[in-house]
């Protein structure tokens, strides 16, 4: 059936038209290299943002299944409901650790990773772990230690597809609708990074297609903030 479709139809559109089950459309055998081309295990030494300020060290949860045959329905209302639903205990409060397993609809494991790229390639994480890649929600967690209080900072996020991000328990950024990952796509209002520990949680929802995100902090002049550090272990 797919071979008979016009070549210009995107995967998402094709899925829409042929009524394919998104999970099955994205379910693929794990590549032999696993996640190695995209991630390395988070090191014990503190990580700093890359030269452009992007946070590369994250705890990433194996994807929660959330079937969506298209990304077209990711309105703010839908996404906010979908991403504030409780899927596992301590979703918004617990401090995860590498190797922890949470009790969602099925057991899901946290992975402490350093990304090889400025963007965190969630599709490749799921694919490399042999997990569903389409129709999923990814949870992400990291901590940034700030050497001083920083005011009028903005959290700058790009994600594929929609996502919501919380800083120290408060919603800071929401990206809605069928989005591609673009650096500095949506910025938070002016916010303050505390001196010391600041907790960032995020959730990315995706139907069919690739999924990733990038996140950095910008100062009041729009310059990337690199004077931060992250320890997850």
């Amino acid at each position: 059936m797919r071979a008979s479709l016009p070549h210009w139809l995107t995967t998402a559109t094709a899925a829409l038209l042929i009524g394919a089950t998104p999970a099955s459309a994205g379910q693929q055998a794990a590549p032999a290299a696993g996640i190695a081309p995209y991630f390395t295990p988070a090191a014990a030494a503190p990580a700093t943002p890359d030269g452009d300020g992007f946070l590369r060290r994250w705890l990433l949860l194996e994807p929660i299944t959330k079937p969506n045959r298209s990304n077209a329905g990711f309105t703010a209302s839908y996404v906010r409901t979908a991403l504030t639903t409780d899927y596992f205990p301590g979703q918004f409060t617990a401090t995860p650790h590498d190797g922890d397993t949470v009790r969602a609809a099925e057991p899901l494991r946290w992975h402490a990773l350093d990304s090889n790229s400025f963007d965190i390639k969630l599709f490749n994480l799921a694919q490399g772990l042999g997990k569903p890649t389409y129709g999923v929600i990814f949870w992400a967690y990291t901590v940034v230690d700030s050497p001083r209080e920083m005011r009028d900072v903005r959290m700058a996020v790009g994600s594929n597809a929609a996502s919501i991000w919380w800083l120290n328990g408060k919603e800071a950024v929401g990206l809605f609708n069928d989005r591609r990952m673009v650096m500095d796509d949506v910025l938070s209002d002016r916010l303050t990074l505390r001196k010391g520990r600041n907790v960032i949680r995020g959730a990315v929802i995706n139907g069919p297609g690739l999924s990733d995100f990038c996140l950095r902090f910008l100062d009041a002049d729009g310059k990337p903030i690199t004077a931060l550090s992250t320890v997850l272990r």
Binding site: L175, D185, V186, L187
Partner: peptide, 10 residues
């Protein structure tokens, strides 16, 4: 436009 999708005052 402080971001691709975010307007603000600056």
């Amino acid at each position: 436009a402080i971001g691709a999708s975010t307007p603000s005052l600056a």
